[in-house]
Simulated assay, not measured.
Amino acid sequence: MAIDFLESKTKVNLMRAFAGESQARNRYTIAAEAAKDQGFYAVQQIFLFTAEQERAHARRFYDLLKNISGNTVEIAGGYPVDHYDSVIELLRAAEYNELEEYGDVYQVFGKEAKEEGLIEAASTFFQIAEIEAVHGRRFGKMAELLEKNKYFESDQNNRWMCLNCGYIHTGKMVPGVCPVCRQDRGYFIPAELAPYLGYNFVQ
Rank of each mutant, 00 (worst) to 15 (best):
V108R: 15
P190C: 05
A31Q: 11
F126S: 14
K148D: 06
F5N: 11
L118G: 05
A143H: 04
S22I: 06
D37C: 08
V108C: 11
N200I: 14
N200M: 13
V180F: 03
F188R: 00
A191G: 05
N71F: 14
N158W: 09
L65F: 05
E101N: 15
L14Y: 07
I168N: 00
M161L: 14
V108H: 13
A35Q: 00
D155Y: 02
A94H: 06
F152E: 12
D155F: 09
E101L: 08
I189Y: 10
M15R: 11
Q23Y: 12
R182P: 03
V134D: 13
F126G: 01
E115Q: 13
Y84F: 15
L14T: 14
F5Q: 10
F47G: 04
Q38Y: 07
G198C: 10
T50N: 06
T124F: 06
L14S: 12
G20M: 07
C178H: 03
E147M: 08
P80I: 01
A17C: 10
A51I: 08
Y187Q: 07
V12T: 15
A76I: 09
V87H: 00
R138E: 04
L163Y: 08
V174R: 02
Y187A: 00
M15C: 13
F5V: 15
I131N: 01
M173F: 12
I3L: 13
N164L: 04
D4R: 15
K172C: 09
F201E: 07
D155N: 13
N158K: 06
N164M: 07
Y84E: 05
V73G: 00
K150S: 10
A113S: 06
I168M: 11
C181N: 09
R25G: 07
S22Q: 10
A94G: 08
A113N: 01
Y28S: 02
A143D: 08
L99H: 02
H169K: 13
D4I: 15
A194R: 08
D184W: 12
R92K: 14
Q38P: 04
Y84T: 09
E74P: 08
G176P: 02
I88S: 07
M161N: 00
F201G: 08
G20R: 04
S86G: 08
D104S: 11
E192Q: 11
E120D: 07
Y41I: 04
Q23K: 14
A76F: 14
P195F: 04
V180S: 10
V108Q: 15
A35R: 01
F188K: 06
I168F: 05
Q156G: 05
D82E: 15
E95D: 00
G103N: 12
Y96L: 06
C178G: 00
F201L: 15
V177S: 02
F152H: 10
G103E: 12
M1G: 14
C181E: 10
